[in-house]
């Protein structure tokens, strides 16, 4: 069974093949009468994604948020304006930001004092 992230990734891949004009770089793009229609289609698709998020925010995992944020980023790079759902964008931005955080620190076994075993009763 396919993972939900893979399904979403496949969805965006299909979208790319359906609306290739939206996915070519702005300077390469030759204006076509269908561009606006394609943009409208993509906006509606993103709207569906946002509706899924609003219905079940907890079920919307990190990978989906990132994918959503990347699509919007790519749209901006292509010269389109789409601000996206604010809360979802914020969460996606935080997830991406926290990916850059410094790693965990392993405890290497210090002295007994560090272990909190140094407390002795005064006799």
């Amino acid at each position: 069974m396919k993972d939900s992230n893979e399904l979403l990734a496949d969805h965006f891949e299909r979208l790319k093949s359906l609306v290739p004009d939206l996915y070519i770089r702005e300077h390469d793009r030759s204006p076509t009468p269908n561009t606006d229609a394609m943009y409208g289609l993509l906006k509606r698709t993103l709207g569906i994604v946002e509706a899924i998020y609003l219905k079940n925010a907890n079920g919307f995992n990190d990978a989906r948020m990132e994918e959503y944020a990347k699509v919007i980023q790519e749209l901006k790079e292509l010269g389109f304006e789409y601000s996206g759902h604010e809360e979802l964008m914020d969460k996606a931005a935080s997830k991406l930001l926290m990916k850059a955080k410094k790693p965990m620190k392993r405890a290497k076994g210090g002295t007994e004092f560090d272990q909190g075993k140094s407390d002795r009763k005064a006799i």
């Binding site: 969460k91 935080s94 997830k95 926290m98 955080k101 790693p103 965990m104 620190k105 392993r106 405890a107 560090d114 272990q115 909190g116």
Partner: peptide, 26 residues
């Protein structure tokens, strides 16, 4: 559990903070 045994365990606090940031509990 580490903090239960030593509430001032530096690595446990730092790592716990990393886990909470992964969970989005800022």
């Amino acid at each position: 559990k580490a903090l239960e045994l030593n509430p001032r365990h530096f690595e446990a606090h730092y790592n716990l903070a990393n886990v909470y940031s992964d969970m989005g509990n800022f």
